[in-house]
Write a protein that binds this DNA or RNA. Structure first.
Length: 377
RNA sequence: GCGGUCGUAGUGUAGUGGCCUAGCACAGCGCUCUGUGGCAGCGCUAGCGGGAGUUCGAAUCUCCUCGAUCGCC
């Protein structure tokens, strides 16, 4: 992988760039659609390409469970396996330490919206996940069998999967973890980062992950430490404070400590209203489930904002899903029809909305790229 | 015409005298989803066919009535 910076904004930390891989070039800033199980749910690879997506991210944990990396390797790697010939990333499985652990125990996401009053202290372990110095024991969500993934295991799996960009194995901490817990966790993530670097034998690009939760000194410490290692790029992970207003601030702490010439990926963030802010903070790529996940709930993003197409009022609207949109779905299908499909439980509805949402998000980011080019952002 | 069975929210049902200010499922309406659980979670709306009685107390027992359904003539 090679990262070229084409332009740096004078108005913000935003920048235009190119990530060149052996599977093609990614223009940044760029949204990375999520293909957890080697598929963008509801779409085939050709359709994903028609949404103008440039790069996808799959998940090590899920693919390890099903079908297991050995089948993917036999197929010739993920690109061949899923017939996606453009660039690919794989997430390390570190996020599952959180999502299957404390995230599940406390029913909380990465962004804390309501104070629960609970906090996670040093030495605590989540109920269904056990975190040790060498890695993490999981109960398989499939058959309950005990599984173990640590930094070495994650890298080995990711090498077999064969994505262009792979991530270091980390612990994503919960927003209700206290300072002591977060600090200890961070130190472990740092030790794991070095193991990942040492373990990797392929030519794949490896990104380290900055953690540190909502704590400024830990974030800076982590960015300095991870930024000082020989990674090809950097992921910024974890939770983002008690509310979203904190996010740009946290990004500023971190990004000012990271080497300028390497790409920065923000993990798991990308609601429409966040995108411009994170790009202005200096993020080059970011993955997010919002366009695809919300689509499967009937939520369409477009020029009217966020609308729920399952509402009966749309049965009366004989108009494109999003007026003015030129995607294949909007040119061919109307709101009344998709509303009907949703109410009838027809899968095609989910596919049509997923396609449009991805097309819309990609167009939204493309707009921002051209604004950076023109010096407007 | 005679006899039986049955009538609980929009639909399908639980409930056989006090635990029913009537439970559940789907539909309707609303909200929530940020390194994804492929159709989720949470909340709201809405009902004992009608009437009279028995009883401290009735969706539940009795009678009348209306309606549905089956059998017989």
């Amino acid at each position: 992988m090679n990262f070229k910076i084409l332009k740096k904004s004078k108005k913000s930390n935003a920048r235009l760039g190119l990530i060149e891989t052996s599977h093609g070039v990614v223009e940044t800033p760029c949204l990375v659609p999520v293909a957890t199980q080697a598929v963008v749910k509801t779409l085939d690879s050709k359709e994903v390409q028609e949404t103008n997506s440039q790069i996808l991210i799959s998940n090590t944990f899920h693919l390890h469970l099903k079908p297991s990396e050995k089948f993917v390797e036999k197929a010739g790697g993920l690109h061949e396996f899923m017939n996606w010939k453009k660039p690919l990333m794989t997430d390390s499985g570190g996020f599952q330490v959180f999502s299957l652990g404390f995230g599940r125990d406390f029913g909380t996401g990465k962004i804390l919206k309501a104070q629960s009053g609970q906090s996670i202290k040093r030495g605590n372990n989540p109920k269904s996940v056990k975190i040790t110095e060498d890695g993490v024991y999981f109960n398989s969500p499939i058959d309950g069998k005990k599984l173990f993934i640590g930094p070495k295991e994650s890298i080995k799996i990711q090498e077999k999967l064969g994505a262009d960009i792979i991530f270091a194995f980390d612990e994503c901490t919960s927003p209700i973890a206290d300072y002591e817990y977060t600090k200890k966790s961070l130190e472990k993530t740092h030790r794991w980062a070095k193991i990942c670097l040492k373990e990797k034998k392929t030519k794949q690009s490896l990104f380290g992950i900055v953690q540190g939760g909502k704590f400024k000194d830990l974030r800076i410490e982590s960015a300095k430490f991870i930024g000082g290692l020989n990674f090809d790029g950097f992921g910024i992970g974890g939770e983002f404070g008690d509310n979203k207003k904190e996010m740009p601030k946290m990004l500023n702490w971190v990004i000012s400590e990271l080497p300028e010439k390497k790409p920065r990926h923000l993990l798991g963030i990308g609601h429409l209203e966040d995108i411009e802010k994170i790009i202005k903070a200096g993020v080059d790529t970011f993955d997010c489930t919002v366009p695809t996940h919300y689509a499967r709930r009937g939520i369409l993003f477009g020029s009217e904002g966020k609308i729920n197409l399952k509402q009966s009022k749309y049965l009366k609207k004989r108009e494109p899903l999003d007026k003015g949109c030129v995607c294949n779905v909007c040119l061919n299908y109307r709101k009344d029809y998709v509303c009907h499909l949703l109410k009838a439980g027809e899968l095609t509805a989910l596919k049509l909305i997923t396609f449009h949402n991805l097309h819309y998000f990609n167009g939204y980011v493309e707009d921002i790229r051209s604004k950076i080019k023109k010096g407007e952002i």
